[in-house]
């Protein structure tokens, strides 16, 4: 059966999205076709606004509506602490916890010579510039606990420590509320090695 062109276009565009295959794309497109016109209009407007109204914060590279993001402009945040993350999505994850009231800095990746990512490709210079105001006292590195993330943390620590700032890395260990017996061996092993005094 020949699929009408407008429908085919939507199917093709949707199937470009991550974790959406051809069949799912088709189901979604047909669902939209059957949906209320207002709902589809709102979705389409939302998508356009997403691209037109949202940008990256000039200071920390978080996603933001204004030139400078809400976290960076907030007076309630502790300006002496900066938490360094790989991607803006990590900020959302940490913000959900309500445990951190400092500022953020998005690196935009990690060091990986194999994929051609070096120091110049990360927002490191911009981070160092933020220290000039002398407000910052502590840097918390919250990168992923894989080889590349760890190496980037080591690099950052070596770079920042001589400037007289306190540098720490977030802890790794067992999930809260999870059963010890269900955690994977590597995580338990890690947690035992980096145990803490109580």
């Amino acid at each position: 059966m020949l699929i009408p062109e407008p429908l085919q276009l939507v199917i093709d565009e949707l199937s470009k999205l991550p974790s959406i295959g051809k069949k799912t794309a088709q189901r979604l497109a047909l669902h939209l076709l059957k949906s209320d016109k207002e709902m589809v209009k709102s979705l389409a407007k939302g998508l356009i606004d997403l691209k037109e109204k949202i940008q990256f914060c000039e200071v920390c590279f978080n996603i933001s509506v204004a030139n400078i993001c809400e976290i960076c402009t907030s007076q309630k945040r502790d300006r002496s602490k900066i938490c360094v993350v790989e991607e803006a999505s990590d900020i959302i994850a940490i913000e959900r916890t309500n445990e951190f009231d400092g500022l953020y800095h998005v690196l935009g990746g990690v060091l990986s010579p194999l994929s051609g990512k070096g120091v110049e490709d990360l927002n490191i210079k911009e981070l160092l510039k933020r220290f000039e105001s002398n407000e910052v006292e502590e840097i918390i590195l919250a990168l992923n606990p894989d080889t590349e993330g760890e190496t980037t943390s080591l690099y950052m620590a070596k770079l920042i420590k001589p400037l007289g700032l306190k540098v720490s890395r977030i802890a790794r260990g067992l999930p809260i509320g999870g059963d010890l017996e269900f955690a994977d061996d590597a995580t338990i092993g890690r947690a035992v090695i980096s145990r803490i005094d109580i």
């Binding site: 060091l111 010579p113 120091v119 080889t147 190496t151 980037t152 080591l154 690099y155 070596k158």
Partner: peptide, 12 residues
């Protein structure tokens, strides 16, 4: 600038 990155990979 690559030398300082080498130090980090050496540490790992």
């Amino acid at each position: 600038s690559l030398y300082s990155q080498l130090d980090a990979w050496t540490s790992t």
